[in-house]
Each structure stands twice: as C-alpha cells, then as structure tokens.
Design a protein around this nucleic acid. Structure first.
Lengths: 331, 331
DNA sequence: TTGAAAGCGCTAACAT
DNA sequence: ATGTTAGCGCTTTCAA
C-alpha cells in the first residue's frame, strides 16, 4: 500500500501539516526542513492522494472532455490537443464518447460533472436549453458551438468560406454547389451563411444541395445531386464528405478537377492521401483543444460569471490547395 | 453546492448510514425507508461523491487508458471500445496520449496509477522491465503486447498472416514482399514470424524490406524497395503504410493490382476509401477495447496474481478482400 | 433494521 | 516556522 502523508511526516520528523506545506507552499517552510521532507518523500516514493486533497480543497485536478465520436479524426485531434495541454498543467482528462447520441450526452455530462473541475464539450449535440442548464452548475467550455453565457472557442467559418470562394472564383468558377451537414449543426448554419455571403460578394452563384450525413457515405450520396446543379465546383461540409464525393465522382467517370473542382473543410490526415489530394480549409484542431484547456483553467480560477460570459476565442482556418481544384472547364 | 448524504438523511428522517446502505445494499434496508430515501435522493438530485467514497473503499471507479497516439485511427477505435464498455459498468475513463514517447509513457502511467483502480496499456512502447515494474504495484491489462505475468489481450497475428498468404497464393503469387514496422514493436516481430511460416508452408518466397515508420510516409518510403525485390505482392505492417505505398506506386505508374497486389493490416476506415480499395486483415479494434475492460474489471475483483497470470485473450483477424489484390501478373 | 462513532488521507484555520 | 485540531463526504464496524 502506498505511503501516506503521515508516513512521510514521521520519517522526516515533522508534522503532517508541515509536509503538506512543504509540498504546496514551499516558500512558507524552512529550507532545512523542506529538504528533510523532500528526502522522505523521495525515499518513500510518496505521491499525494488527489482524491483526499480534492475532498477538502474542492478541486479534483481533473477535467472532462466530451465528444460525439472518438473515431472521427477531427475529434481525435481535438482530444489530442486537450490531452497535451492538460498534461502540462498536471491535470488528468476524462474522455467520454457519446456516439453521436444527444440524449446519452446529457446523462454522461451529468455523471462526469461530479468528478471534475470542469468540462470541455466539443460539438455537443444537446439542445441550447440543456446546454445552458448544464453550464448553470458546472464549469463548461464549448468547442465548435456557442451558447448564451457559456465561454467557448469557435472557428471563423465565415473567413474560411471566404478563402475557399476566392480560390475558386480565381480559377474561373461562377457557380458553386454547397453540400451541407446536419441541419441542426451549428457549423452547418454558419458555413452556409459564410459561403453565401462570400459568393454574393463575388457575384457568383450558390447551389445548395440537401443535407447529408457528415460522413463518407454522405458524400457518396451527395455527389450526383451536386453535379446535377450544373456547378463547376463543390464545397462540402467536411473532408469526410468530400472524400466520399470524390469516390462517387470517380465511379461515374467524372474527372476532378477536370470537370469539377472539390473543396473540403477540416484537413484531416486522410485528405492528403485522397486521390486527387483534397483542397481544403485547414482548421487548427489540436490548437482548439489546447485553447479550450487554457480557457477552462482560466474559468476555474475566476468563476465570476461576469468574466466568463463573452469569453470566446476564434480560430482561423487556412486554405490548403491540393489537386482537387483546378480551372473551371470552358463551356 | 451539491447535496450531501447528510442532506438526504435529514430529509428522509434517517441516519446517513441508512442512506448509504439504501444506496449500495438495498436489500439490507426496510422497503418503506428505502422508498423514503429514494424520494429524498430524487428531490435533492443527490449524487454520491465518488472521491469521498473512494477514500474509504479504496476504489475510485475510474480506469485509465494509455495509448501512443490518439490521432491514429487504430488507437482511436480501441479507445472507443474501452469507452463504451466502461460506461456500461459506470466506470469513468482517463485517457492519456503519450505521443509515441516511451519515456513520457512511464511517467504518465505512474501519475495516472494513483487515481485509478487499474490501467489499460495499449501497444505500450515501454521496455519489458518498466512494464513489469509497473504491473508490480498497479492493476494493468495489456493490449497488443505481452509481458511476463501481466494479463492482456492480443491479436492472432499468425492466423491473420496465414489468411493473407492463402489469398495471395491462390491468386498465383509466389514471391511476397513484407514491409515491417518498428523493429522494437511486438507486433512487427509476431507478424514477420507468422508471415514467414505461412509462406514456408505454401512453398512461397518471402522478401523482407527494411523497417519503416508505421505511417503513410513510411509506406511511401517502402514502395520502391518493395517493388525492386521482384515480388508480385506486398504485405505491409498496417493500413496506413499500405495506403502510402499505394500512393507511391500510383505516382510511379505501377498498376495495383495489375502489376502488384497490396495487402494491409487493421482495416481502418480509410482503407475502404483508398484507391484501389485496400485488401486487408481486419482486426477487431473496438472489441479489443471492450474485452480489455472486462479483463481489467475481472482482475480488480480477483487481484490474486495466480489468476491473472496467464489470463490472456486472443482476438482473430478477418481477411477483407477489396480491389488492391488480384491475379499475379504472368511473367 | 437502524443509528452512533470512527476514520479514509489530506488541508486549513488556529495556536504556538 | 511549525504543530494541533477539526473536518471534507462517505462507508463501515459495532451496538442497540
């Protein structure tokens, strides 16, 4: 069984409180005793019991991360970023995967909430009402979503869409199809809007195509409709969709970028490997995770709701041009 | 602030111990009082503080999962499986990503160990010695690796290789190149051996090609050497490598499967999307995660080392034939 | 079947 | 600068 603070105290010939102080407020203890304590800690391999500490300080030193699907490379990257930054602060991370289930999400969050100092909710599927309710009695940071009075970090969808459009228009495209994701998705709404605005500014035309699952299969399903609009370029909700679309176009013998140009969003690893390699708007995924941790830690140190409200980071995407975009075909 | 057990006790008109019992050993308490307690719990939205409980029971109800790289789809899948099964048992999961760093791994494990009932180590990079030392004072289950006296679950690499070889030999291939992963990797060693044995049994020839990083780039790097061996088929350490290899072959104008057949291992989502779609040995990734949880929980309930030692699950791969394999070209 | 009391490992007043 | 005391929220003997 592991050594306790009393074991250390006994070995160092001091009281438990002194050991406690030597560990958490070193400057308040005599250098000599501090050394003796350090030696005892070393000898016993003592590591404080964080649960016991948490019981009294009210801080667990743990945070939770909730994502819709760990197997989705986008979320995996965010998780990796959260991970890395949390470690730097010696904070452990609970990870929960809701399997894209909004109902399960709320339950999971409630369960996790009791064991952590705060929660990072990445692209939560829960309703605004549920989200606000959760934020009421838990420290929460949102990624990829906004909610009334809840701090969070989002991507500049508008700016990303603007870059994609500028690129396509420069290549001569005048009619661009948009394959949207889930209607209820916060990102879909903002990306649609950004795209629409950017196209308007360039005097180009937007052709919206249904709403599709944010998956490879969704892209396969969307391809024919996108082509049927007569657009010479297609922008998709994310890279997974774009890659599915690419596959279907290939199957139909439609050349990319010869006949149609394709642009994705995210820049997951797979996009580099697609054929043709996918032009996309790179979103700083790991950075989103890192910043979310910083934000959460800041909230914990200053739980004043006044400060938190309106605390919102915005991350910018970067256009990555690869082989799936080229000049618009001459009519 | 959250309700405590005393609040519930007061509201129900009983003592805290009764509440405790009503919750964890319901049959030991009168039905009527049990109902009153339940009502109070409901009304107050009471949820027991797990840290406090853990302090006394010595069980945290948490487990830890350590992986080399969350962004690798293979590990993401395992994590998802762990996740799902842990939730069923109302166990929360700490996830730690070591970034493929063996040194960081040991430190991370030590830190996590204090906060959990047990640890699942997936493809750990640590040395056998370190691993055994860790298993000394922590409940550990290994995935994708074996170590003296530590329970774990592994894949039947031998059987998987046998299936791949049978497939290729049936297609007329007589010389097969093997692109190995990291030399220190447990999987590499066992896959090499399995492949070698299977080929020997069929009277076919093995051409080993260097050791490469288990990544897309590794596959790109391996392609030319694999082709230079004169083999008509290539088996790679994993799908990521196979996909990189596919890309390089395509760039060189070498047709797959016309000139060369390619087989990967894992069956990550990306493999279905590759062009040509990748023939591969599917490993039950999520299932590995689920079983690891079961195994760990079993170890916790029966910490007798005698039982644990030798407890080892074996999972079997399944050959998935797609478009990257075809008849051997006629000389 | 229930309650009272003790204590898990730690920190935070309060003394000294 | 250090020790003493009390108690975080819970479970678990031990009595009743």
């Amino acid at each position: 069984m592991p050594a306790t603070i009393r074991d250390v105290a006994r070995l160092a010939g001091v009281s438990p409180s002194t050991v406690s102080r030597a560990l958490s407020m070193p400057e308040m203890v005599n250098a000599a005793t501090r050394a003796r304590v350090a030696a005892a800690v070393e000898q016993l391999g003592y590591q404080p019991n964080r649960a016991a500490r948490g019981l009294i300080t009210g801080r667990t030193g743990n945070i939770g991360l909730v994502v819709p699907d760990l197997a989705n490379p986008f979320f995996a990257s965010v998780a990796k970023g959260v991970q890395a930054r949390a470690r730097r602060y010696d904070v452990a991370v609970f990870v929960a995967d809701t399997d894209e289930d909004a109902a399960a999400e709320v339950g999971l969050v409630r369960a996790l909430a009791k064991q952590v100092d705060g929660l990072i909710l990445c692209s939560p599927r829960a309703s605004d009402a549920d989200l606000s309710a959760i934020a009421q009695d838990t420290n929460v940071v949102l990624v990829n979503r906004t909610a009334e009075g809840v701090p969070g970090i989002i991507y500049d969808n508008e700016g990303g869409m603007r870059q994609a459009v500028a690129h396509l228009v420069a290549l001569g495209h005048r009619k661009i199809a948009w394959v949207g994701g889930p209607v209820t998705s916060w990102s879909t709404q903002h990306r649609t809007l950004g795209l629409s605005n950017a196209l308007y500014d360039h005097g180009a035309e937007l052709a919206r195509v249904g709403s599709f699952a944010p998956t490879y299969e969704g892209g396969m399903a969307a391809a024919d409709q996108a082509v049927a609009t007569g657009a010479t370029a297609v922008v998709t909700y994310n890279d997974l969709v774009a890659i599915g679309l690419l596959a279907r176009l290939h199957a139909r013998g439609i050349s990319v970028p010869g006949d149609v140009s394709v642009v994705g969003i995210d820049d997951i690893a797979m996009s580099r490997m697609a054929r043709p390699a996918l032009t996309t708007v790179r979103l700083p995924k790991q950075e989103a995770g890192r910043i979310a941790v910083e934000l959460l830690l800041a909230v914990l140190d200053d739980p004043d709701p006044g400060t938190a409200i309106g605390t919102r980071g915005t991350l910018h995407g970067e256009l990555i041009v690869r082989d799936s975009t080229g000049p618009a075909p001459q009519p």
